[in-house]
Design a protein around this nucleic acid. Structure first.
Lengths: 189, 189
DNA sequence: TCCGTTCCATACAGTTATGTACGGAACGGA
DNA sequence: TCCGTTCCGTACATAACTGTATGGAACGGA
């Protein structure tokens, strides 16, 4: 019967995610993954049709863990909408590796329509979830939308910005912004 | 005396910017630039030491045009702070090519410290300029900072997001957000 | 011990890129 | 017409990577 998997399929995907996070899709090279794992490319082509097939599976893995798991974990904690938003933000900021994959995929999506389609699916689900939370905090529909946009923008944008020391530190700024965003009807014009 | 430049140095930089915008730094290949221009690589190495030298000059060009020219153009239009912010936003959203270079540089900066340093310089100058404008609109210092963060985040983040049809269109959303941000003291908590 | 499954190493062919060397071609003055 | 500047084309050496083919090695049952 089956012999144990020494370097199973998942290992290549795992190492692929690491490479993607570190250097984008162009850094996902069969050669370097093999070197990182400590084997030659021999086994790779037993598992995968070609390099493209690996990239697909990498995206599959990212898509699964980045929506389902995330929302699940936030919901599991319970609490009101404000606490959940807090937790969502902390979660997004915490798991360093997953975040880097996320950013790499975002750039990748700019030039690959198939990747863009996947990202759209993921972002829409995240946005829907956020909308449902903000709707519990404020009544006005436009207000909800604007807060979603701000929140999502800060989450994504802040990692692509390189600004240092204005009057306040980055961390302080995010805190301040978050407080604003989770305060009921602060700006119902 | 000097013969006319048929494919001058600047031509390579220009085509390099185009490639960078389209596919990131990895897409800036001496070979493909030559093909795009319609010559062989022969002349390239007369102008540049190597591929790295070209990348440096590409970044130089981006740095020059993306701060100095931008701020200059916004200031040239005159008007009050609100109008200038409006114009700043329109400008940023309009020139498609420059924007794409900007986004490519942002991703690039995540893995190259030298690029990150340049981006920091640029972003700080932009942030300083925005801060000076928002300070004319609202008094509270924290308020100014939060608005800067929101504005910059939306500018950068919205191009890395892939969300469609919430209740309102993307364009409407940005309008709505901008109105909020340029309204004096809307949320002076 | 033998067998099937799972994987690894090695060798090879092909592609695409870099950088170097060098012989010119084109062009505008003098 | 000759010359210097500015480039272009070609050939060559090298490197990095992809994918294929093939012969096994390691391992756990039966």
């Amino acid at each position: 019967m089956p012999a144990p998997a020494r370097t199973p399929r998942s290992r290549w995907v795992e190492e692929g995610l690491r490479a993607l996070a570190a250097g984008g899709p162009d850094a996902v090279r069969v050669d370097s993954l093999a070197k990182a794992i400590g084997v030659t490319r021999g086994g790779f082509y037993w598992h995968f049709e070609d390099r493209g097939a690996l990239l697909e599976e990498i995206l599959d893995a990212w898509e699964r863990t980045s929506i389902d798991e995330a929302i699940e974990r936030v919901e599991a904690g319970g609490g009101d909408a404000r606490e959940k938003l807090r937790r969502l933000f902390d979660l997004a900021a915490s798991s360093r590796d997953l975040l880097k994959v996320d950013l790499a995929v975002r750039d990748w999506a700019r030039r690959d329509p198939a990747v863009a389609k996947r990202l759209r699916r993921v972002d829409n689900r995240r946005m829907d979830y956020m909308r449902s939370l903000f709707a519990l905090i404020c009544d006005d529909e436009d207000e909800v939308e604007v807060r979603c946009l701000f929140t999502f923008s800060i989450f994504v944008g802040s990692h692509f910005m390189r600004t240092d020391n204005g009057p306040r530190s980055r961390r302080e700024m995010l805190e301040l912004a978050l407080d604003r965003l989770t305060t009921p009807n602060f700006g119902a014009l």
